[in-house]
Design a binder for these strands. Structure first.
Lengths: 123, 123
DNA sequence: GTGCACCTTCGAGCGCACTCGAAGTCAAGC
DNA sequence: GCTTGACTTCGAGTGCGCTCGAAGGTGCAC
């Protein structure tokens, strides 16, 4: 089983994060130390990529880096932190729901404003 | 008709923006020059507050300050800029829709992850 | 008339999340 | 054996959107 892994450039393309950002995430402890090849270059595994994908979803939904670091650290500490990890995700979920509701509300205002412009133009 | 207006502190409470932010918005041209009372203090009218409310909706939906400034400037230029203003809002609307769709997608992943934790805990 | 609260301008500072660049290492190709 | 190019570490720089603080003015209460 050659778990060879891919280079940082390929991981960048796959994850949508820049190579700079991938190294940054690693040094702040957001991503566990990535394996290295013979030359000392980073070698990203499928598990690394899956974790990065999950992280980008958390980021996109507005979770601060600090909170993601906390989650990552709990994960490293092992299964006894599962309950707290779940709590973090649930609280975040609530914030995302609120965010979506707010966006829908603001979207409605935007739509009304746009309609107003259409009426103005047709009169 | 006493269009007396309210102080910056009251406008801050009403709009949810800090007094510092209100002055900042004014100096970058996001808010047209607010009227002054006898003492030279800002006096916010209903129109000012309505504009601030609209601005906060644009901000909350992720419109960059620079774009809002552009919109504000078009508004100052008069009715012949209405079509372009509508275009700006429509393009923004599209981005908001995408954003909502993405959030819903990410929320689904979050939900699955949370379910996973529940299953872990109940086994 | 003096304390006080609240306002004013102005420019500097901050927090977040990257983003970049310098300087060096290493392996492959010619 | 030398160039090329992608990688490495490290610390400093950037952009955005505020946020703050210093220094001073104004008007009212006592």
């Amino acid at each position: 089983m050659g778990m060879t892994g891919i280079t940082i450039q390929e991981a960048s393309r796959t994850s949508g994060l820049s190579a700079h950002t991938l190294r940054y995430y690693e040094r702040i402890g957001l991503v566990p130390e990535v394996g290295r090849d013979a030359a000392g270059h980073r070698s990203y595994t499928g598990a690394d990529l899956a974790w990065l994908e999950f992280l980008t979803k958390l980021r996109r939904t507005g979770m601060p880096i600090a909170d993601m670091c906390r989650y990552a650290e709990l994960l490293r500490r092992g299964p006894e932190t599962a309950a707290e990890r779940r709590r973090i995700l649930q609280e975040h979920r609530e914030r995302v729901l609120e965010r979506i509701a707010q966006l829908n509300g603001d979207l409605a205002v935007l739509d009304r404003k746009i309609d107003m412009y259409h009426e103005m133009e047709s009169s």
